[in-house]
Amino acid sequence: MRENFVIHPDYSPLAAKLMDVLINFSKKGEYVTKGDRNVIKRVQLEGTIFNIKKFKTPNVFQSIVYQFLRKSKAKRSYEYASKLIGFGINTPFPVGYLEVFSGGLKESFYISKHINYDFDFRELIHNPKFKNRNEILRQFTKFTFKLHENGINFLDHSPGNTLIVDNGGNNYEYYLIDLNRMRFEPMDFNARMHNFRRLWLSKTMIKVMAEEYATLYTKPVDSTYAMMLHYSRQFQKKINSKKLRRRRK
């Protein structure tokens, strides 16, 4: 068995305690989410709260791929978070990661610093009367535009993956989470509009966001709206069709 434990220098004094939590993951901390694929737990050490994500154990083929051909999700999460921060993009601070290998990747964990957020993007979808909704959408669009301008293609740009902090005075901060699927590449207009597709936007939301993006990108509002709507509806139709097929089985 071989372990690869990487920790940010700022948190090296806590390395031993964090490693103890990882080794005894089933017994330490409190559950944040407990899904079939991934588990997230919260732990407090010396006054600092950390979130630890344990990724699903890969199958035999995947475990070999992750050892020799591709970076693990934990390593990608750590490296991508570090890149985002370098670009001035908010994400919970990357503290470290652990990979455990034995004939392939057996376990992997990603550690980040906990942030206290007020709501996530999903609430804007479910509650059309959410306070200051249009302003939050406009600022979110500026946040997404900054991603695109820096060549960041966040492949999981979906409602649950943006946490929002209300700083008061109509000022909001946006934090990306679940970072292991990301590409760093130049993004043309088509790719930028395609990147909005997973957000499950209504026509009203698209109107607000398209107007803001068009201003930032100096593109006509009509074509921006049409392209954003096209990709959003295409994605929603695909997901709804899958759900319908599952119900029929």
Rank of each mutant, 00 (worst) to 15 (best):
V165K: 06
D166V: 09
N167M: 14
G168D: 06
G169L: 05
N170E: 13
N170T: 08
N170C: 05
N171E: 14
N171H: 15
N171R: 15
N171S: 15
Y172L: 05
E173Y: 01
E173R: 11
E173F: 01
E173G: 12
E173N: 13
Y174A: 01
Y174K: 04
Y175A: 02
Y175F: 14
L176R: 02
L176Y: 05
L176C: 07
I177F: 03
I177P: 00
D178P: 07
L179R: 06
N180V: 00
N180R: 04
N180H: 13
R181K: 14
M182E: 05
M182F: 04
M182V: 07
F184I: 02
F184W: 01
E185H: 00
E185Q: 11
P186L: 05
P186F: 08
M187A: 06
M187Q: 12
D188K: 08
D188A: 11
D188T: 10
N190F: 13
N190V: 15
A191F: 08
R192T: 12
H194K: 14
H194Q: 12
N195G: 10
R197E: 13
R197D: 09
R197H: 14
R198T: 03
L199T: 02
L199E: 01
L199K: 02
W200K: 13
L201H: 03
S202D: 09
S202P: 08
K203N: 14
K203D: 15
T204I: 09
M205A: 14
M205V: 00
I206H: 06
I206T: 09
K207M: 08
K207C: 05
V208S: 01
V208E: 09
M209G: 01
M209P: 01
M209H: 08
M209F: 04
A210V: 04
A210G: 11
E211C: 07
E211V: 11
